[in-house]
Amino acid sequence: MLSVKNLHAYYGRAHILQGVSLEAKAGEVVALLGRNGAGKSTAMKAIMGLLPPAEGEVSFAGRRIERLAPYRIARLGLGYVPEERRIFTELTVLENLEVGRQMPRPGVPAWTETRLFALFPNLARLRERPGGLMSGGEQQMLTIARTLMGNPSCVLLDEPSEGLAPVVVEQMAHSIRALKAEGLSVLLSEQNLHFSRAVADRAYIIEKGQIRFGGSMAELAADASLREQYLSV
């Protein structure tokens, strides 16, 4: 579904991604783990075309996308949920969803407001609420729902559990499992190992712009030294 090979990217002169390779198969939830500043968000942006990669290949649904504009990538069915959420604060919940709306894609679950409100019941009560007046958890739900309105076949979720209260994190995990049940692929970046273990099939660990580990969640759970080295304080 999504495959990244030897991706390099820079912020200004800072060499952030130093040859990242990873893969997410159809219907799979993959976690990209790492500490602050390890390069998780940059990897997401580079895949989405928001930060043009300097080197490397990105393939999605059988097409090379590393040179495409973000809107073309989105239209191929790759959804992006940014870490900072980037809700349109002056727009209501319904309007935020409207901006995300794209034509349905054959073979991919088609989302409507009604179905999304069923998935995120909190949003249903807030239809006319401006995005700027919502809590962090509600905004996180909205930013995911907004991306789903584009009927993606694969979603990049950048730190979905960050800054959320434990009970909201629980809901988020539930929602991601629901997406998987719909047949969507998900690549999520996380610092929270607990959360990742609750939702992901496989995991990569990124550290200082390079992939240091790739394997199943079970393998990761079994290797305490790995966790200690890359994820602990």
Binding site: Q191, N192, F195, R227, L231
Partner: peptide, 10 residues
């Protein structure tokens, strides 16, 4: 501290 960084899994 371990809790914050490892999400209670360590």
């Amino acid at each position: 501290v371990r809790d914050v960084y490892l999400g209670g899994m360590a």
